[in-house]
Design a protein around this nucleic acid. Sequence first.
DNA 1: ATAGTGACTGGAA
DNA 2: CTTCCAGCCACTA
Length: 112
Amino acid sequence: MNRYAVICSTVRRIPRGRVATYGQIAELAGLAGHARQVGYALHHLPERSDVPWHRVVNARGEISPRSVGDSHELQRMLLEAEGVEFDLRGRVDLKRFRCHLAIRPSATARRR
DNA sequence: ATAGTGACTGGAA
DNA sequence: CTTCCAGCCACTA
């Protein structure tokens, strides 16, 4: 079980129509303080991955700017399709759409 | 091996 | 409330 796999499985737990922040994912994945690694992991995802990568936004509720690519446009489209709303500044109201997941004890070694 | 980068964050302004 | 910046440290080259 590598770091990316743990992150991916955590992202998969985000319910439809909700979002989570990078830091939140990192924490849930047992990698508290390593939010950037979440970004790296998502960056490495294959396009047809079943991981709902688009449900991950930054701490401000924005879709994080990417150095390359145009996937952020797709991301917003996917989120709106799930009912996530953006304000005029392109930000999600985290108070409303952030998912509340509990930190799974031993996220890396689930059930023996 | 070293150096540079970044899909981030929290605190400061 | 907002934007800005330094620190962060694994990842890439």
